[in-house]
Amino acid sequence: MSYPPQNPYGQQPYGQQPPPGYSQQQYEQSHQATQAGMPLPPQAPPYQAAPAGQFGAPLFQPPGGEGPQLWDAGTLPANDNVNPYCFSVDLNGAYYLQKGKMIAYYGEMRFSGIGRGALDQLLERNFNSPLHASDWVVAEGRGKLLLADRAYDLNSYDLEDGNLTVRSGNLLAFEPTLQLKQSIIPGFLTLIGTGKFVAASNGPVHFVEPPVRVDPQALVGWADCPAPCHHYDHGYLHGVLGGLRHLTGIGGASGEEHQFEFIGAGQVLMQSSEALMADRSVGVIGAEPGIPGAGVPHQQQQHGGGLQGLGNLGDLGRRFGL
């Protein structure tokens, strides 16, 4: 197959040329902060018609004129979505990303596991989550880096001197200007500082203002200072009949007795499905008293020999004295 002899992008260094059809103004608009500290994710740029037959490439051209778009190092957006499922990072320096989320890159890059000697200084500043270290890598170099995760929706978020807590499996990448810390709530990571990060959600992400109760599987994260707590609906499990129902299982449960409740000022991020990332085993938090999720049992079992198999409804059996 033949390509035109001169190549319009080949001589250009990275990032010199704004991508066609994606003006700076548009870029800024899509990145406009809607709220201090927690801007909404930018919209993906609209799909462009392909440069028709420009490269002699076998591309689908439907009669409407709108075809798939060709990308290369010059036309890929800088730190923005290529489509709802793919994010392009304009790498110049270092970037943290979760293992296995790179799908392609132009340029020269090196991926090194966290815990390597040369990166220790960077890590001291930014990476304060030793349990998750084995899931993360640092990409170093120059070029365009494409990230994607199981065709989940990707969004980038700009933090300005803010904080955001996100489920550890949903966080894909973040700038080294942010600090990553482990949340007190097991399985969540907190980002603090100013910078951009990329998170995945199954289906588009929704922002909800507390007070709100969300399904645990739909929760992606929260920003600013809502207080997260568990909420159990077991009103109908009260009394003798309810107790019987709970013990015997007759009558069943709706499966929605347990929610997360958020109160306070901030925003809660939800995904539009209840599909979760497979949790990776990250080990146990240091066994010290007073640390939630640590390997220490926080209370001695008082009711030895009590009924087993009561489910996890707040150890309800104990309240019945069983």
Partner: peptide, 28 residues
């Protein structure tokens, strides 16, 4: 799986791809 991203490779601009994300290629 998810809409494909079509990336152009030209002289001097090599592309590196994760083998798990690669589906097809054309050209020389």
């Amino acid at each position: 799986h998810g809409p494909a991203v079509i990336l152009r490779v030209s002289q001097g601009l090599p592309l590196r791809v994760d083998p798990g994300a690669y589906i097809a290629h054309t050209g020389n």
